[in-house]
Structures are given as C-alpha cells and as structure tokens.
Computed example of a mutant assay.
Amino acid sequence: MMRKILVIVGSGKLHGNTNQLSDEFIRGALETGHQVKKVNLTENIQGCKGCGVCQNNGHHCVIRDMMKDIYPLFDEADTIVMASPLYFWSLSARLKSFIDRLYAISTDDEYPQKDTVLLMTSGSDEFYAFEQAVSFYRFFIKALGWKDQGMVLAGSCITKQTETAVKEHFLNEAYCLGKRI
C-alpha cells in the first residue's frame, strides 16, 4: 500500500544530524514507492495560545506562521514522521510547538487517524538519554489514537564543525524503517 508520508524535522540545522537521519528514512520510503513531503521547522512556530478560537472558526488557527502551510500537508498524509534532536532529554521546542498546534484540527478532542514514526538524534550515548522523549511520544500518540510504526534513536552523534556524525548503523536502521513502512 502506497503511503503519503509527511516528515516534520524539528531541528534548526538544515544539514545536521537529524536531517541526515530523516533523509535516510525518506530514501527508503521513496524506494518503496511512497509519496514523501519533508518540512524543516527552520522558521519559528509559535506555541498554542490556548485561546480556543480554532474550535469555533472551522479549525483555523489565528496564529499566522508556517503552520498555515503545514496543516494541508498534514491533512493529506496518512503517516507522520517526527524527527528531532534531543534537547535537555526531550523533543525540540520546534517539534513540540508543531504538536501543540495540532489542537486546531481536533474536533471534540478527537484527531484524524495517523500512523507515526519517531526519529531522534543525540550526542549522548547513555541508556536513559531518550527515555523522557520516548515516554512523551508514546503518551501523546496514544492520547490521539495514532499508531506507532517504529522509531530510530541515534545516540553518540557528536558533531564536529560542519560534519554530521550519525553512526552508519543508525542511518541504515532509518533507511530500513523507511522501506518497511
């Protein structure tokens, strides 16, 4: 079955580790015949104001930033890939703002069914590094009724100047996940 995949990259670095991991996932997905669109959250996305206006005006968020261009892509996709560097043992603020702003598309706290993937990079190789981020991911996709299709948690990504440093086995894991999805 051909999927429509939206890859949301919550890193401010266009050529960093998280993008490199995402690109390998995308390469695998494209080789399998899936349609893929990638969005880099390089512009600021404001967090949800909690004003609730979106719930009364046709699910249109009053905040005017790059999310207005992402909502239609989100609607078309059946699979959402969230990619983030690990910042202070959690998702990046960019990705978290994206997630918070999905409230605009809910109806009575119900969300459209999506499959999901989590891709993360970290300089840490400690066993606990991704624990909090994964816990949040699992909790929120369960709350939204989404289905996890897998994750790649790439630790020990130490960047030197302009060089990315994702270990080959993590790149291969992302590529294989993209092919398998």
Rank of each mutant, 00 (worst) to 15 (best):
M1A: 14
M1P: 10
I5W: 03
V7F: 04
I8S: 03
V9H: 03
G10T: 01
L14F: 12
G16S: 06
T18I: 02
S22W: 01
E24G: 00
F25H: 05
I26Q: 08
I26H: 01
I26F: 01
G28I: 13
A29V: 07
A29H: 02
L30G: 08
E31Y: 07
T32L: 10
G33I: 03
H34Y: 15
Q35G: 08
K38E: 09
K38R: 13
N40R: 02
T42F: 03
N44I: 03
I45T: 12
Q46D: 05
Q46C: 04
C48Y: 01
K49D: 04
K49T: 10
G50T: 06
G50D: 08
G50F: 03
G52W: 08
G52Y: 09
V53D: 13
N56W: 07
G58A: 03
C61D: 09
I63E: 09
I63T: 13
R64S: 10
M67A: 09
M67Q: 04
M67R: 01
K68L: 10
D69R: 13
Y71G: 08
Y71F: 14
P72K: 05
D75M: 13
T79A: 07
T79D: 05
I80V: 15
M82Q: 09
A83F: 05
Y87W: 11
Y87C: 08
Y87E: 09
Y87M: 12
F88C: 05
S90F: 14
L91M: 15
A93S: 15
A93K: 05
K96G: 05
F98Y: 14
L102V: 00
Y103K: 05
Y103N: 06
D108K: 13
D109A: 15
D109M: 14
D109P: 01
Q113M: 12
T116P: 00
V117T: 14
V117F: 11
L118S: 09
L119K: 12
T121M: 01
S122V: 06
D125F: 02
F127R: 12
F130C: 10
E131F: 11
Q132P: 05
A133P: 02
V134Q: 06
F136M: 12
F136S: 11
Y137V: 07
Y137C: 03
Y137Q: 06
F139G: 10
F139C: 10
F140I: 11
I141N: 00
I141E: 00
K142L: 11
G145K: 00
W146G: 00
D148K: 06
G150D: 13
M151F: 07
V152L: 08
A154C: 10
C157A: 14
C157W: 08
T159A: 12
Q161D: 14
Q161E: 15
E163L: 14
A165R: 07
V166C: 06
V166L: 10
H169R: 08
L171T: 06
L171M: 11
N172E: 15
E173T: 02
A174E: 08
Y175S: 01
C176I: 01
L177C: 09
L177W: 07
G178I: 03
K179Q: 12
